[in-house]
Write a protein that binds this DNA or RNA. Structure first.
Length: 584
RNA sequence: GCCCUUGUAGCUCAAUGGAUAGAGUAGCGGUCUUCGGAACCGUUGAUGGGGGUUCGAUUCCCUCCAAGGGCACCA
């Protein structure tokens, strides 16, 4: 069955053709108000001027045409020139049965078949904390990856990490100073728990970063240290390698908790890129394009004169001859294309570097126009605390792990009261609900805007939240636990449908369209909106109508609705990177 | 100063240029001898100001006001 919207759009094109109007795109809307049908279209209004006819007359002709379709049971032309139409009970039931048969496959389409897409996200830096900004990037990136996979794209995940650069110099400098003050050796720290090591690193970074700004001698030493790191000076090899390893191990543990699937050997991304490896490539690349006039020397540095293109100038190679983030990123772009012959390369980062990325893409378009054309940058909002922006320099941050632990505490409080859960299952359930609560609170808003991270809001497990959806699923499971579902439901046996049943049927049928829309617009929050709406409808239905204690045919239908709802909630939550639980 | 983004209910957010601007939360009032109350129902409450384009504007354009981010060797 073609997607119903496309199917009806084709019918409308036919109708328009008959009155001598050829159009390629017909927009089908989903009216919020139920009185305006399952779907509606305003093409008549849009075209009235061009074809010089009364909109209502065009609308009537369209309505006549689609009414003839077997999936439509009512179509009407109204007021200024809208056409509203309703799907048949037959279609809705067929679609719902389809959900139960296809299970996790329901919602999959071939929109991006044979498309290779590389998506870079998370990008935490070794030697620095993994804070809730990284958690956000990871959540968004993973969700987009899953969305595209559901649309049949060949997806590879990439993680780009800054293992060289000023922040590393600041950290190592701070680490050395800190160890000296505490009278600890590197071996002493190595003995600590991973979490403790990471905390120590975080403190070291804060120390280095603060003194870099306030102490000239520290600043000079850090700058020198930065050079040593690039040069792989043996003096610092040991401390560098250890610190880097601690961080990377720690990051993998977080990905695991967040529910990313391990791809190989405990690693969760297909490609890991390090600044230390792409830096040289970027450096060479920039140098070869100086003679061609793309980059220029200025005040001892190599810059890209962005003003020429209505942007701003940025330094690509600093006066010490080291590549800045900009040059490294150019090297990265080339490296990615060598590793994976992608059709599209998506880069997910914080939106504070939107301006910088424009400059970068401009420079890339002059060097490798083919790659620049295939690259999309998504700047997600910054995660802010109610008090303002986070800063790992001042230590005013919420780490990913502390957020998880704090949320989990709240979840546990509720679970401990529940008599439905065995003691041994508490831990796993709490973990899944916790991750669900956090991810959902990050994804339910549009990607571009900043997220004011209110702990109280995230910890709230009621209303429009991840746990609400997980609860809906568990509730369905509870009903279904001891009931056999009978698939042989004949539409003719279903007489009168209750309003609550109809609204559920309609909502269920809209899932595949929603997935496409969310994928095309890079908008996981559309999935959130949809799932919340579906769950509300189910819970209302549940409240009003008995499912099990009712006569045979009705029970069949209601069990089908319950099964289908559970399946769609599960499939949708998967797209958000959230797992379901049978009991909670 | 220049560039970008954002102003919707007390707060946090929705609304492919469509019809009566939706939710959550907070407040107030209800639902429970029923399949899971992390639930359900009702109620109070909003498009920053001013122009313009359009049959129709929260959405597009201009302007003013306000907030945030970026603007040369950090990422």
């Amino acid at each position: 069955m073609p997607m119903i919207k496309d199917h009806i759009a084709a019918k409308i094109r036919d109708a328009l053709k008959k009155i001598g109007c050829e159009v390629t795109v017909v927009e089908i809307e989903e009216p919020v108000n139920r009185a305006f049908g399952d779907y509606s279209t305003s093409v008549a209004l849009r075209l009235a001027k061009t074809i010089k006819q009364q909109p209502l007359i065009i609308a009537k002709k369209i309505a006549e045409e689609i009414l003839a379709d077997k999936y439509i049971h009512k179509a009407e032309a109204v007021k200024p020139g809208f056409v509203n139409f309703w799907l048949t009970k037959d279609y809705l039931l067929k679609q719902t049965k389809d959900i139960v048969l296809k299970k996790t496959e329901y919602g999959k389409t071939s929109v991006y078949e044979n498309k290779k897409i590389l998506i870079e996200f998370t990008d935490p830096n070794p030697f620095k904390e993994f804070h809730i900004g990284h958690l956000y990037s990871n959540t968004v990136g993973e969700s987009l990856a899953r969305l595209y996979q559901t649309l049949s794209a060949d997806i590879k995940r990439a993680n780009y990490q800054g293992d060289v650069g000023m922040h590393v110099a600041k950290s190592i400098w701070g680490l050395k100073k800190q160890m000296k003050e505490d009278g600890l050796s590197l071996a002493d720290i190595e003995k600590k728990e991973l979490n403790e090591k990471i905390k120590y690193l975080g403190k070291s970074y804060a120390l280095g970063a603060t003194l870099y700004e306030t102490d000239q001698q520290a600043k000079d030493e850090i700058t020198q240290l930065n050079k040593k790191i690039y040069d792989k000076n043996p003096e610092i090899t040991d401390i560098y390698e250890k610190g880097r390893r601690w961080s990377l191990e720690y990051f993998e543990k977080i990905y695991d908790r967040l529910g990313m699937k391990a791809v190989h050997g405990g690693k969760h991304f297909d490609f890991y890129y390090f600044e230390s490896l792409v830096g040289g490539k970027g450096l060479d690349l920039v140098k070869t394009f100086i003679p061609k006039g793309i980059f220029e020397k200025s005040q001892g540095a190599i810059i890209f004169p962005g003003e020429k293109y209505g942007l701003h100038t940025r330094v690509f190679i600093n006066s010490l001859g080291l590549p800045t983030y900009e040059a490294k990123e150019l090297g990265l772009a080339i490296k990615k294309s060598e590793d994976f012959d992608y059709d599209q390369s998506i880069v997910v980062t914080g939106n504070e570097i939107n301006g910088y990325f424009k400059v970068l893409l401009k420079s890339l378009s002059l060097i490798r126009p083919d790659l620049a054309a295939k690259t999309v940058h998504i700047g997600h909002g910054m995660v802010k605390l109610p008090e303002g922006k986070m800063s790992s320099r001042t230590g005013k941050i919420i780490t990913g792990l502390s957020l998880i632990e704090q949320t989990k505490k709240e979840v546990m409080k509720i679970i401990e009261k529940s008599k439905k859960i065995d003691l041994k299952d508490r831990e796993t359930i709490a973990e899944k609900v916790t991750v669900g609560a956090i991810k959902y609170s990050l994804l339910k808003n549009g990607i571009g805007h900043d997220v004011i991270f209110d702990m109280k809001e995230t910890l709230s497990l009621e209303g429009n939240s991840g746990p609400y959806l997980q609860y809906t699923y568990a509730r369905c499971q509870s009903v279904l636990r001891n009931c056999q579902l009978d698939y042989n439901l004949n539409p003719d046996d279903i007489g009168f449908l209750e309003a609550e049943e109809v609204s559920l049927l309609r909502a269920l049928a809209k899932y595949p369209d929603t997935v496409c829309l969310a994928g095309n617009n890079l908008s996981p929050h559309l999935i959130c909106n949809y799932l919340y709406d579906l769950s509300q409808k189910f819970n209302y239905f549940y409240q009003k109508l008995p499912i099990i204690k009712t006569e045979k045919q009705t029970k069949r239908l209601r069990l089908l609705l319950t099964t289908a709802t559970a399946q769609v909630v599960k499939n949708g939550l998967f797209l958000l990177g959230i797992e379901t639980v049978d009991r909670m």
